[in-house]
Design a binder for these strands. Structure first.
Lengths: 112, 112
DNA sequence: CAGAATCCAAATTGATACTG
DNA sequence: CAGTATCAATTTGGATTCTG
């Protein structure tokens, strides 16, 4: 299993509780910190900050300070970030297709 | 963002630290508990048990007690489990392709 | 607005020992 | 072999307060 190492590394990125949610929010272009905060239900500003910094560190998002009045901070996907987003698309489709089935399986399992 | 809910649910499955690693180990057919334990480096037997139970509960793996001597327990992917495995394949390819780039980005970031 | 810093509660996890 | 049970340690995360 020579690629087990790769699999684990990528899990450090996508396995993060919020990372893929943030990537998804950025798929249609740049978003501001507050926009992200508002649109990702339940995320604290602490976690959003941490998630964004990790993604920035990994070269998946770019952080830009926009010097208008009032100034704000904009985040957008890098080229690599967009390829990541594309690579996760099948997973989202899978979830939309199978989640009902999973709910059923789970309910049956819990009945026993 | 009407599918945010789906995205979050699926993260509850794939976002698990070990789940995808287990699914990957099962891609070529059934494996026994101990085989999985050995081949997934660093997993404790506690975590393997918990991960397998979650996957079983969600209808992604099947647990079978094999009544030979000595008896053992076999795990294999369900049909749905195999579709999940296929849906995660692009992500693995992505990781193999981009991980070096991520390492670079990370190193540069940390230098500052 | 976009964070940083601090504090604290809760959830995860590993190590270990035990069992049918 | 394939777990379960328990405990301790670490991590994680939320709430809150403060700042350029």
């Amino acid at each position: 299993m020579q690629d087990a190492c790769e699999a684990r590394e990528v899990l450090g990125i996508v396995g993060d509780k919020w990372a893929l949610l943030v990537v998804r929010m950025l798929k249609d272009g740049p978003r501001r910190f507050t926009e992200l905060k508002r649109s990702i239900d339940g995320i604290s500003q602490r976690m959003l900050t941490a998630t964004l910094r990790d993604l920035e560190r990994d070269g998946i998002v770019i952080r830009t300070v926009v010097e208008v009045m009032p100034p704000h901070v904009s985040y957008e996907l890098t080229t690599m970030g967009r390829t990541l987003r594309e690579a996760t698309a099948p997973l989202l489709e899978w979830s939309i297709e199978h989640l009902p089935h999973i709910a059923t399986a789970r309910a049956e399992y819990d009945d026993r």
